[in-house]
Amino acid sequence: MSHLTDLPTWAAVGVCGLLLFGAAMTLIGSLGLLRLSNFYERLHAPTIATSGGTILICLASMLCFAVLQSRWIFHELLIIFFVTVTTPVTLALLGQATLYRDRFEEENGVPRKHRPEGEKGPD
């Protein structure tokens, strides 16, 4: 980590660009949480941070350490893989929980659940 000054200029520019761009994507994702008006819309905002933001920041890290040749760059690939695979679970769970609550409270604009004839559901 102490050899960051050895980084050639072209690599430093690339790393900086990727880092800033990734951080901007993450910021936009968080801004979306603040700005969008209902829960279902807000569900879309964090995926920007987890897909775009994570991938760009990891690419910056990979570029930096690949040029410095100080260590392998496979950790970042694992980070990208696991973040992409695990966030959908959380988001789908949150979405289903909200859908269940909104149907229970008979909120307007939420699609009803289709039930077969003669079956009584909890809502």
Binding site: L43, A45, T87
Partner: peptide, 23 residues
């Protein structure tokens, strides 16, 4: 489900096994 949630702009909400529809 993974692909649709990883893509910002679409969010998987519910799959109805009996009717085979996705919301």
């Amino acid at each position: 489900a993974c692909i649709m949630t990883a893509t910002p702009g679409t969010a998987w909400l519910e799959y109805d096994r009996r009717r085979k529809t996705l919301l």
